[in-house]
Design a protein around this nucleic acid. Structure first.
Lengths: 246, 246
DNA sequence: CGCCGGCTTGATAGACCTCAATCATAGTGG
DNA sequence: CCACTATGATTGAGGTCTATCAAGCCGGCG
């Protein structure tokens, strides 16, 4: 079990380049771009490692490669997964009073971390960059709210179906038709993300498999026969299978 | 039952002034400030009215006075309250594919609406304003995530207690000791916000009253004896009252 | 090949939802 | 000013879904 040490993995130099490409694009003047990059430190985390290991200030984190879960400790041994993050995401990790947020690597993870204050001070010099960050944070807010819809009034079946649909979009890049994805997270992570217990997650996978909506191979590979059918399941199917028109 | 018409209420001229004070402060140069304000249109909504009545583009909305619920239609007759908004809040109302977000007035409501694109284009000229908007959106994201914690692994009792604590902070301005608040929302709104049914909400209020933690007067007035005790209830008390040390 | 951690499956209990009826409150009109 | 009415809130009974507890079962890794 890896601890919160940043291992002996070399801080992948490509990470910073990806940050330039994704966030700075060609929006920032070379001078400012250099200064922004100088603020960041690249990290390489092994599966299971947490970031920040220990932190006193707010951080902005760019995920260059890999997958991570963004978690909050609710109370003793009760963690809540707030979001899954993948390559290209720009996450704001604020410190909290009651137990902090953490970014935990699900796979080998390349990231670049910036102190929030200085980064924003500097970005102010280059409004296009600031706006890009704003746009991303508005999208994150949108996703967070959409996720709240899932947690609100939905059954376990609906939550899992919805989860698979959104993972297909983010991991498989597909929103319709068939799709095969390799889930980087465990059943427990999925449960913590959807407000379900691990057993319930497992049962729903079994039911979806029995219903012919998905196939599974090993622990991680999920083949979805038809994303539209799954989306329908996630959307409004409550007990329609109990009331067929006969 | 008021429809989504903006009534015959006069568009309170003070709204724009409040917007200047809260968002522009003295950060923007007079020229830009004028242009920003020119983009906005002030509205006055009666209790129950919805905004936007019909909309094709993303909006940024400043709440000048009153209380509102920010909702999303999950499906037929299943609405989810994503957040409650009060005077001073700056909300981003994005359009969605599957049923849009709406801001619904809980009291008489004064607001100023801006088209998101043009507003941000202009704000880019004045980075301090853009940053202020960013900071607010990061805070909204933080609140949204904190709220997800509530919806995640918490019991009805804990959710209601937590709701009352956070309303005391936002409405009563208190985070400790006793507090009296007047809730602008119905039991149904509270339920839609926490993922609970109206009956469950009611039962929890009754239980809290029986437990001496709160007093109620009429439908809306809640007197909290001790916010710290209530926060404890929201935090980790699971079944501690079932296991006293005897 | 054998172990360990994660996953699946089963049985049970409890929390919350649903349906149904009554009550209270706040707004309305006589 | 008071009675009336409609809407929201409360209370009760019963059912469903999910959490919890308890075994086994795989799958990946040494």
């Amino acid at each position: 079990m890896p601890m919160t040490a940043e291992s002996k993995l070399s801080p992948e130099p490509g990470s910073m380049a990806q940050f330039r490409k994704a966030i700075l694009r060609n929006r920032a003047s070379p001078g400012i771009a250099e200064q922004l990059c100088a603020l960041g430190t690249a990290h390489m985390l092994a599966k299971g490692d947490a970031f920040p290991p220990c932190e006193k200030s707010d951080q902005l984190v760019f995920v260059a490669d890999g997958a991570a879960k963004f978690i909050a400790e609710a109370e003793a041994a009760k963690t809540q997964v707030l979001a899954f993050q993948f390559a290209g995401d720009f996450v704001s990790v604020l410190r909290r009073r009651d137990g902090d947020f953490q970014l935990v690597a699900l796979t080998e993870l390349a990231l670049v971390a910036f102190p929030a204050g200085p980064f924003l001070d500097l970005a102010q010099e280059e409004p296009t960059v600031l706006r890009s960050v704003l746009t991303r944070s508005l999208h994150a807010l949108h996703r967070s709210r959409t996720k709240m819809l899932r947690l609100g009034h939905k059954s376990a079946r609906q939550r899992i179906a919805d989860f698979l649909v959104s993972m297909s979009e983010r991991l498989g890049g597909r929103i319709t038709g068939p799709c095969e994805i390799t889930l980087p997270m465990t059943r427990k992570d999925i449960g913590d993300s959807l407000g379900l217990e691990i057993e319930t997650v497992s049962r729903q996978f079994t039911d979806l498999r029995d219903g012919g909506l998905i196939e599974t191979q090993g622990r991680s590979i999920v083949r979805i026969a038809d994303l539209d059918a799954l989306a329908l399941e996630a959307g409004q199917t409550q007990k329609s299978e109990i009331h067929p028109q006969n």
